[in-house]
């Protein structure tokens, strides 16, 4: 298939005119809320933005397994252990969906993993914070998954079909995880004084990093305007962040836990909660790789991949030796 890039780089004048027609058709389809599918023409920059965003999303699912898996072997009851294992398994599954969806745009899982391992592609900065107590598992479910859902539900209507469809499945499971996290915190909050303190401490540590998950403020968000025109994104960072704060405040009250922000209060006029300033310096440092766990997370991911190389090679070698057997079985 000749790509649009090839047309632009080497094309004749007629072909340039053709590209302009493709562009008009693409813009019209997006404007009419039609879905763009893998075989449809799309602008190179649209393709590149989607690959970047979907890859980062997939990487976040994979790296995001680590802070929670950190507690699987120490989960305090068998029921909680089963829930946590199922959740981490779901995350691996979400990673698989998202890599598959990204592959429809002409990249491969190997290529994307390579970019993750070499630091050329990012994952969500939230996973560079450590899980220090069992309550962190609950705080991640309630706040981190909650923020992720607020971000991701609009993606179910994203203009790119494969991404939108992956998000429908993912959001169902994510909202289940979020409820489980809330319920975990509720059990701690209503438990012994030590358990309550553990829950409060976790919320204190995860609240601000969760708000940072919505990305930089609107006036500093590099990709926002274009992504909104293309209907990859439906709401601005600040709008989603505000929505999240408004959802969390009453939930914190029913949990019997406080949110660590002295400026947080209801603003009658705006019909929203006002909240204090976010420490964007910290955000930028974590993004640059200087968060508490950046090094640890990437090292573990690389090690799993490197130590698994002989397993993948064996699977490939076995398949090559026995490709005839499989054909014979299928015949």
């Amino acid at each position: 298939m000749a790509t649009a890039a090839a047309h632009k780089a080497y094309g004749t004048e007629e072909e340039h005119a053709g590209t302009a027609a493709y562009e008009r058709a693409f813009d019209a389809a997006v404007a009419a809320d039609e879905r763009i599918e893998p075989r449809d023409w799309m602008p190179d920059a649209y393709r590149a933005t989607l690959v970047r965003q979907m890859a980062q999303h997939a990487h976040s699912e994979i790296i995001g397994m680590q802070p929670e898996a950190n507690w699987i072997t120490r989960a305090p009851s068998l029921r909680r252990k089963a829930i946590l294992m199922a959740k981490v398994q779901d995350e691996a599954g979400h990673g698989l969906y998202l890599y598959s969806a990204a592959e429809t745009l002409g990249t491969s899982r190997e290529e994307l993993l390579d970019k993750l391992h070499s630091g050329r592609q990012k994952y969500s900065s939230i996973f560079n914070y450590p899980t220090l107590t069992w309550a962190d598992v609950g705080a991640i479910g309630w706040l981190v998954d909650g923020a992720a859902i607020t971000n991701q539900v609009p993606l179910c209507r994203c203009s790119y079909g494969p991404y939108a469809r992956a998000m429908v499945r993912i959001c169902k499971e994510e909202s289940f995880h979020q409820r489980q996290g809330y319920e975990l915190l509720l059990a701690l909050s209503r438990g012994t004084p030590e358990q309550h303190a553990m829950a409060q401490d976790a919320v204190d540590r995860w609240w601000w990093p969760s708000l940072m998950m919505f990305g930089p403020p609107d006036d500093e968000s590099a990709h926002s305007a274009q992504s909104m025109t293309w209907k990859i994104k439906r709401h601005s960072n600040d709008d989603l962040r505000q929505r999240f704060v408004d959802i969390c405040v009453p939930q914190a009250e029913s949990l019997g836990l406080s949110l660590p922000d002295p400026d947080l209060k209801w603003n009658e006029e705006r019909g929203h909660h006002d909240f204090g300033p976010i420490d964007w310096t910290e955000f930028k440092e974590v993004l640059k790789g200087n968060g508490p766990c950046n090094e640890q997370r990437l090292t573990q991911r690389r090690r799993a991949h490197e130590e698994g190389a002989w397993v993948r090679e064996a699977a490939v070698a076995h398949a090559a030796k026995h490709s005839d057997d499989t054909k014979a079985e299928q015949a």
């Binding site: 699987i72 072997t73 691996a92 799993a304 991949h305 698994g308």
Partner: peptide, 15 residues
């Protein structure tokens, strides 16, 4: 087996 979470050689084996 739970100790493997996040350490498996391929994503399919995580699952």
């Amino acid at each position: 087996l739970g100790e493997w979470a996040g350490h498996a050689p391929v994503l399919e084996e995580e699952v």
